[in-house]
């Protein structure tokens, strides 16, 4: 057999090249900002690929974990004196623990029962964030401390403006997230997850502890969501309970399914397209949402597996 580049490495190289080269085409600083938003969403949808695409379990409440991650960065520095970077890790840990606790009972549910249960969790978190105004600042949101990494970098001679710094920070985070998810895909745990997605009964008979693996996937995806929420909060220096809201959950599931739910680069493409499209369609003014909705419907009708897997299949078919 000849040595060839594995699909994992090829995917990572293409993603890294896109992240690194895109700024060459940026006419202004504003585009760094859009890029960062794509990467933050890209990180969140990668977690959903693990949960929905690999394990076949739906969640309509993952923004709840994004809320935990975001408010960990907003609150822990002030109340606990934690550095924002540590707050981000603490938030991820907390999200993992919460996911583990609620996942045990709700992952016994399947299909739309699971969807409604996770939906409930998301709503719960956003309600708490909105109502506990004394601590969280309520619906008006609250300021988030400066991460401080940019000034540290400047001190060692890497001078980036704020938009450029966040472009790099979120881009690297997304790449790291993609690397981890792609590792999982081809690992023993990843195979077991994909197996239980296709046939739970067959997975059990080869020895897969289905309940345990589903829970692991749920915790992993919650950590992804939490980190993306933290990055969003630190980048914007401001956060509102909307980060944990139902719309945010649905938006991210939509991006994942739109781009290709079983594919890490697919879901990231979905995040990119659905972050960019609304910006691009603003020229259409009041027709913006109409066209956006139409494009989404057409893609799902004609490309049911999502944008990237369908395109790849068509390309292979031509060869």
């Amino acid at each position: 057999m000849t040595m060839r580049l594995s699909r994992k490495h090829l995917t990572l190289i293409v993603l890294a090249a896109l992240v690194a080269l895109a700024p060459a085409f940026f006419p202004s600083n504003f585009y760094y900002r859009i890029g960062s938003l794509i990467f933050v969403n890209g990180l969140a949808v990668t977690g959903l690929v693990v949960l929905i695409g690999f394990a076949g379990q739906i969640s309509l409440g993952h923004a709840g974990f994004a809320g935990i991650g975001a408010y960990a960065c907003a609150l822990a520095p002030g109340y606990l004196g934690l550095h924002p970077g540590l707050a981000m890790l603490g938030g991820a840990g907390l999200s993992g623990v919460v996911a583990w606790l609620i996942g045990r009972p709700i992952l016994r549910l399947k299909g739309y029962y699971l969807a409604v249960a996770t939906l409930g969790f998301g709503i719960l978190v956003s309600m708490v964030l909105a109502n506990e105004a004394g601590i969280t600042g309520g619906p008006d949101g609250r300021e988030v401390a400066e991460l401080g990494l940019r000034s540290a970098l400047a001190a060692i001679g890497i001078g980036l403006n704020n938009a450029q710094f966040w472009y790099a920070a979120t881009g690297l985070s997304m790449l790291a997230g993609a690397w981890v998810a792609l590792n999982l895909h081809d690992s023993p745990s990843g195979r077991a997850l994909r197996a239980l997605h296709d046939s739970e009964v067959a997975a059990r008979t080869v020895g897969v502890d289905v309940a345990r693996l589903k829970l692991q996937a749920f915790v992993i995806s919650a950590v992804y969501a939490s980190l993306s929420g933290s990055l969003l909060a630190l980048m914007n220096r401001f956060i509102t309970p909307d980060v944990a809201g139902f719309l945010h959950s649905v938006e991210q599931v939509t991006m994942t399914v739109f781009g290709g739910v079983g594919s890490v680069p697919g879901a990231i493409l979905g995040a990119a397209v659905l972050t960019l499209l609304p910006q691009a369609l603003t020229v259409l003014q009041q027709y913006e949402n109409l066209i956006l909705g139409l494009i989404m419907m057409l893609v799902m009708i004609f490309m049911r597996d999502g944008l990237l897997p369908s395109l790849m299949r068509r390309l292979k078919g031509r060869e």
Binding site: V180, N183, L184, S187, P188, S189, G190, R191, A192, A195, A203, V206, G207, V208, Q216, I220
Partner: peptide, 17 residues
Amino acid sequence: TGCHLRERGPVLGDLLS
């Protein structure tokens, strides 16, 4: 996947390859 019982291990090791 049929070898799952023989190949399974800590999920953290799988995540970090």
